[in-house]
């Protein structure tokens, strides 16, 4: 056990993990975000806290993660390398850990040009792979990047992301292997819609035995509307939405429950399929601006409730 977070316990005990996602607010009041967390706390094992996602200014993931710890929930603190240099990344790591945060997820972060402050200077002192190796070094060798020793040790369950839908496709499995070499303990995938490509990716992952070296969570985002699907299909780099998904959503317009119900149904089916697929250890449900539907999705999958509980 690296850090003993709830997520780590769920995974190491062989349960199919379920994680949720919370986007901190764009102002000084975190209440809405905390309400989502309370609403979903019995349906997920941990909450991914986004770090100024899509490069839009928000309350810090650090602060939000600490607020969750205070409420007895298990946060996964996202850390992008976009906005902080190695001094601040290491400092925030200490800050989070000192307040009980145990899961740290290393990502590159969407480029600043795509967000609310396109004139910002990107930092990128480290990349996400280097951040993983840095956290491992701090944890396992009790040493900062610069060589100095920590006055008190760090416990960390190190997370990362993988994108089977980005290019070049044939490199993507090697990239996961590289992240494992850098010290990642668990990864979440980018939003899954293209099952054929996912199956091919997971087959290669399993052939290399990578699923035995790192926990892999399937990234699931329910689609709320045809427009949202089309936007992601055409505008978000690294997300593939097959035509059949769009067709299915469109076809549900006149059905009972409409497009939204169909979107939830697709998400439930995707989790079921990933659960059947060799290599996955859990699902990461990213119900963006639709957090209240997480219980319905988790219940819909079947066999996931109640979530395992562990004594501290």
């Amino acid at each position: 056990m690296f850090a003993g977070s709830n997520l780590e316990k769920v995974l190491t005990n062989g349960h199919f993990a379920v994680t949720g996602e919370l986007g901190p607010m764009m102002g000084t009041d975190l209440e809405e975000c905390l309400e989502h967390a309370e609403h979903n706390r019995n349906h997920v094992d941990a909450f991914n806290i986004t770090d100024n996602q899509t490069a839009v200014v928000r309350l810090p993931s650090l602060v939000t993660a600490i607020r969750l710890v205070d409420r007895g929930m298990d946060p996964i603190m996202q850390m992008t390398v976009r906005d902080r240099n190695r001094i601040m990344l290491q400092s925030d790591l200490l800050g989070g850990a000192s307040c009980g945060v145990k899961n740290f997820l290393c990502i590159q972060g969407d480029h600043q040009l795509l967000g609310s402050e396109p004139q910002a200077k990107g930092v990128y002192d480290l990349d996400s792979t280097q951040l993983m190796s840095t956290i491992r070094k701090i944890r396992d060798e009790n040493t900062f990047i610069g060589g100095g020793e920590l006055q008190a040790p760090l416990d960390a369950f190190i997370g990362g992301v993988v994108n089977p839908f980005a290019d070049p496709f044939e490199y993507r499995v090697d990239r996961l292997e590289k992240k494992i070499a850098a010290g990642v303990n668990f990864v979440q995938t980018q939003c899954i819609y293209d099952m054929d490509r996912l199956k091919e990716y997971m087959k290669r992952v399993v052939d290399k035995g990578l699923h035995e070296k790192c926990y892999i969570l399937a990234g699931i985002t329910p689609l709320k509307a045809v427009g949202a699907a089309m936007y992601m299909k055409n505008n978000v780099a690294g997300i593939i939405i097959p035509d059949e998904i769009v067709k299915r959503l469109k076809g549900a317009k006149n059905k009972e429950g409409g497009v939204k119900q169909e979107g939830l149904k697709i998400a439930i089916e995707q989790i079921q399929q990933c659960r059947e697929m060799e290599g996955f250890h859990g699902a990461h449900v990213m119900a963006i601006a639709w957090e209240e539907k997480v219980p319905e999705i988790v219940e819909g999958v079947g066999g996931l409730l109640p979530r395992p509980k562990f004594d501290d």
Binding site: V81, R82, Q108, D110, H111, L113, L114, G122, Y124, D127, S128, T129, Q130, V161, V162, N163, A166, D167, P168, Y171, K178, A182, Q190, A237, G238
Partner: peptide, 21 residues
């Protein structure tokens, strides 16, 4: 690389193009 990373490509690489393309 628009993020100057040394361990790339990141997850925003699609069909040979950068995410800011």
């Amino acid at each position: 690389c628009s993020k100057s990373i040394l361990n790339g490509p990141c997850g925003g690489s699609s069909e040979g193009l950068c995410e800011i393309s």
